[in-house]
């Protein structure tokens, strides 16, 4: 039992490091090569985890090999359009000026049901209102309705908008981030003042954020607040 425990920890750590090095991307946004690598790595790790008869290196070496190949290919993908096209394919236009390009639909093996489903996900019911629909290399469908069909942006509607700032977390779960406090240009005295105004303490704070316009958001701990 202890053997399985130790082996699982080693392989688990190897997986975490591999995935971290591959970069932070959502599963749904994976390129084909990344998806394959993720599937492979997960399967490669599980076999030596379960079977103690398989040497540990038989699990580690393939994972590291897959990681090495993935890193090299990712670098080549950045440098070479040819390799990028080879590994990731290229985006395909499925709808152009309201017309479905059936040959591209066949080429990409996307059925009408799937296309309609993707469009509904983008709140589009009428295909003729779509100027372009492009099937991206990660399998997502980008939909661009005609400008007249799109909701107006604030700029188009002539609406004055407020500046938007990134909130910086000062307290999370009762712990003060000194680094973020410094980044926000504040100090401990300011924090004590803010908490005193709200008649609370650091320990009683679930979340406290501040942005460049000095807008403070404070959420206390507990349901009753």
């Amino acid at each position: 039992m202890i053997l399985s425990y130790v082996r699982t920890i080693i392989l688990y750590l190897a997986l975490i490091i591999s995935v971290r090095l591959m970069g932070k991307r959502q599963v749904g946004q994976m390129e084909p090569s990344e998806f394959v690598v993720t599937m492979l790595v997960a399967n490669l790790a599980s076999i030596p985890m379960q079977d103690e008869g398989i040497p540990l290196f038989s699990g580690l070496v393939p994972i590291l090999t897959v990681l090495g190949v993935e890193l090299v290919l990712a670098g080549l993908t950045l440098k070479s359009i040819f390799v990028r096209r080879l590994l990731c394919g290229k985006p395909v236009i499925l709808i152009e000026n309201g017309n479905i390009l059936q040959s591209n639909l066949r080429k990409t093996r996307v059925t009408m049901d799937e296309l309609a489903g993707h469009l509904r996900e983008k709140d589009v019911l009428d295909i003729s209102s779509v100027q372009f629909a492009i099937l991206e290399t990660n399998g997502n469908l980008s939909v661009f309705p005609y400008p007249k069909e799109r909701p107006a942006t604030a700029a188009e509607a002539g609406i004055q908008t407020k500046k938007q700032y990134m909130p910086i977390t000062i307290i999370e779960d009762g712990y003060v981030s000194k680094e973020n406090l410094q980044e926000a240009g504040k100090d401990a005295a300011w924090l004590d003042r803010v908490l005193a105004q709200r008649k609370t303490s650091r320990k009683e704070t679930l979340l406290l954020t501040v942005d460049k316009s000095d807008h403070i958001m404070w959420i206390p701990r507990g349901d009753g607040a």
Binding site: L21, L64, L67, G68, V69, E70, L71, V72, A74
Partner: peptide, 9 residues
């Protein structure tokens, strides 16, 4: 990272 990959391989 490519060099790291090459190094690993």
């Amino acid at each position: 990272r490519s060099w790291l990959g090459l190094g690993i391989l």
